[in-house]
């Protein structure tokens, strides 16, 4: 009997140890990736890196200003498309009666859109925009990114609104404020923290996306400010440079990876700040 308890305790400790070791092993690839990106990327980072466009094949140096600006433009544009759209679709879901068939279908659609592989979104954006316009454009890339952002914004809006006490809505309605005005002017501002978090998460999701941009924004070695023209983005540049045989371009790609990861980190940090600072005290 005594032995049995001893054995069981040993087994329990052994299990804990195995679980701990297995879970800590996940840091090996993380550390390895970060080591690669930081040690190689840091070599690329200098003033030129942020102010120049990539140099010609074979020349060393150059920068990724075109990709930084392109990422900025395209993500910004996709926010402009996706946020008002997703926000009001989220409001619709919040507002719909429980047994609404339409709301059920809409929720299902949002789930499905969320699960579409990004490359498939890229293909469809190609068919919708690039084929009729007969040229690659930043606009088509932004649209593909917007489709990726949409489900997250819809869902976070709906869920946030559901957490706000109903009494707030009633207080506004009792003042004779119309229904939709109440939703937009009272409910949305009260849920701003949750909605912004959803928005930031969706930016984090699309800023590193390459697949939907390959056939839409396509990439460009020049600094472009016209959204109807092909444009580069950081993940696209990483892909193109990584797949090239040139050492100097590889260095650029590592540098771009470093700032992309840094950017994602900033977004995670931003989310934590939003949650803390913008939380509306109810």
């Amino acid at each position: 009997m005594k032995n049995d308890i001893f054995f069981r305790k040993l087994q329990s400790s052994f299990f804990f140890l195995v679980m701990l070791v297995l879970s800590l092993m996940v840091f090996l690839p993380l550390i390895c990736i970060l080591y690669y990106v930081i040690s190689r990327g840091i070599k690329a980072i200098n003033l030129d890196f942020f102010t120049q466009i990539p140099s010609h094949v074979g020349d060393s140096g150059g920068g990724v200003l075109n990709a930084i600006m392109g990422s900025f433009y395209m993500v910004f544009l996709s926010i402009i498309i996706a946020v008002p759209w997703g926000l009001s679709a989220g409001i619709f879901l919040y507002d719909a009666p429980d047994d609404s068939r339409f709301a059920y279908l809409l929720r299902l659609s949002v789930d499905i859109i969320q699960s579409i592989p990004s490359i498939v979104i890229g293909i469809v954006a190609y068919v919708w925009f690039v084929m009729p316009m007969q040229k690659f454009s930043a606009l088509s890339g932004s649209f593909a990114l917007a489709i990726m952002m949409l489900p997250m914004i819809v869902r976070s809006t709906e869920e946030t609104l559901r957490l706000i006490p109903k009494t707030l809505k009633e207080a506004s309605l009792a003042l004779g404020v119309p229904h939709y005005t109440t939703l937009f002017k009272i409910m949305i501002p009260s849920g701003v923290s949750g909605i912004l978090t959803g928005g930031a998460l969706s930016i984090g999701r699309v800023v590193g996306e390459t697949a939907p941009l390959i056939f839409t924004a396509f990439g460009s070695p020049y600094l472009v400010h016209n959204i109807l023209k092909p444009m580069d983005a950081l993940p696209l540049l990483i892909y193109n440079c990584a797949m090239s045989p040139y050492e100097s371009w590889h260095t650029l790609a590592w540098g771009a990876s470093l700032i992309l990861i840094f950017f994602t980190l900033c977004i995670n940090l931003l989310i934590k700040i939003i949650v803390k600072k913008w939380e509306v005290v109810l």
């Binding site: 996940v26 590193g208 980190l265 995670n268």
Partner: peptide, 14 residues
């Protein structure tokens, strides 16, 4: 979460 936040293309490059 950081591991989840690393872009796919960086995983590919690594």
């Amino acid at each position: 979460e950081l591991l989840a936040g690393i872009p796919s293309v960086v995983y590919g490059f690594w």
